[in-house]
Structures are given as C-alpha cells and as structure tokens.
Amino acid sequence: MNDDGLRVGVFVCECGKNIAGSLDCQKVSDYAATLPDVACSVVNKYTCAEPGQQEIKRYIKEQNLNRVVVASCTPRMHEPTFRNCVSEAGLNPYLMEMANIREHVSWAHINDWDAATQKAMDSVRIAVARAKLLRPQTEASIPVTKEVLVIGGGVSGIQSALDLADAGYQVNLVEKEASIGGIMAALDKTYPTMDCSI
C-alpha cells in the first residue's frame, strides 16, 4: 500500500470522567483531525464499551479506514479488545495502535489541565506517526500441552490440583516438604466453622 492511500481513524476515549475530567478530549480529537492522513477523529464516552466499538467498526467501513488509533487507557489493558474490534471490521489487528492518555496522562496530571491536554495531543500525534508505518501481521498458532504444574501443596495448591484433575487434566503437584498440607495442616481448628483443618 502506498502512503497516498493511508486513511487513519482516531478515537479519543473520555473513559467517563477518568480522562475527560483531567484534559480536553474534544480539543485532542480536533487536533488529531488536522494531522496528515487522518481521515476522521471522534470522541467516545467509553471506547471499549459496545457502542464505542460499534462506532470504530462503522467508521472503518464508512470511511474506508486502513489504520486505527485508539487514545484511551494502557495497551496492557485493552490492546486485545481493540485488536479484536478492528479485525471484526475486516482490518488486520496489527494496524491498530493505542495512545495511553489515561494511566500516563489524565491520572498522572490530574490538576494540570493544559499540560495534560498538550501531552494527550502529542501522544496521539506520536501514535498516528507509528500507525502510519504499521504493517499487517499474521500470528503463529501453537498447540498447548494439556498438562499442568501446581507448585506448593498447601490448601491452595491442593484445591487447584483437585479441580484441574477433576476437570480431566493431568496434574503434577510439587511440594517442597515431605508431605502435602502446608501451614493449614498445622492448625488445630479453622474459623468460622471451628472444624478440623485436615
């Protein structure tokens, strides 16, 4: 695809008041719209919610978008959400980029409206610059070994091991001491039922 065909859509999330309470989302969106190759820019109340995702999908189709920038929370939280969303609209998931304007901006600069707005605008500009150079990628699929390791044979390890084994998986339970039981086995009775711990 040549650069002339780039059509970036920017979606600025208010996250209720989480972002909109500390910076000017409309201004960020208006600024994004002025950037080269940005075809559209909109503000959503909650981009991750169903209406927000529907809007991304609608714009991808209506505006023929081939890149999406979501300015919202950390990609460590919702990158999978928005990758799924754009791929449902037919776009390769790797053509979506996020600008973190919540954890890194609105929450970190609560009482600095202008500086936070400026940082959010810059974050969107940086994300758009990266988004324009993104390429579609294909993920490799690998099989999962259907066996599990539980480390520790106290009450928690025992419960996890039994649940997983009852569910049909082969479980390897490793305990450092000579017997399972852990600290619980050394307790006489346990609250609130006052019954035996073993």
């Binding site: 044979g153 025992i158 091991a161 039994l162 084994a165 049909g168 998986y169 082969q170 479980v171 390897n172 339970l173 490793v174 305990e175 450092k176 001491e177 000579a178 017997s179 399972i180 039981g181 086995a185 073993i198």
Partner: peptide
C-alpha cells in the same frame, strides 16, 4: 489431602 494422594490424574512429587 487424602484425595490428592488417591487421584488417578495427580502425580504427587513431595520433597521436591
């Protein structure tokens, strides 16, 4: 505890 020792799908490695 006893159920773990008896369960056919649990390999128990103590002192490990």
């Amino acid at each position: 505890m006893m159920d773990v020792g008896r369960h056919p799908r649990i390999n128990l490695y103590t002192y490990s």
